[in-house]
Amino acid sequence: MSANIIGVYQYADDLLDAAGRLKASGFDEIELMSPIPLHGVEKVLGPKKSVLRRFALFGAIVGGVGGFLMAALSAIVFILPTSGRPIVPWPPFLIITFETTILLGTLATLIGFFFSANLPAWKDRPYLPAFSDNRFGVHVGCDEDAAEKVEKIMLDAGAEKVERVKT
């Protein structure tokens, strides 16, 4: 049985302080929740890497190659010469290539975002509505017997209140 503990903070520096202390005490499952993107989180919780950029690159390359092939192959599968131009001319097909590059690049970035941010997640997760308003929160998942310790650390760092939530 594990426990989910949320600490609510009024001030952002208190939150980062608490996160630092929790990290130092050996808790790994730490999530910070805030109404705005916080700066300096990486300093406290360690640098983040995301696969997002790979998704974007991959999507753009697939889009580019696929777009050109779509235009070129569709032109040779049913040959309809126009205007004395080649069947596979560069300038128009590069425009098509460019557009599909952007299109698939964007879509892949979107998928990458969902994938790497664990969204969409429509089930209930540890959260308090105040975090979209003006409060900052830290969520720690830990063993039942370590719960007391976590709560203490949170309160020491200046938490307004500490809550235990299910799931």
Partner: peptide, 12 residues
């Protein structure tokens, strides 16, 4: 999408 505003979500 079940947004919670976690540090991970903001980063991504």
């Amino acid at each position: 999408f079940g947004w919670r505003g976690t540090d991970r979500e903001w980063h991504r």
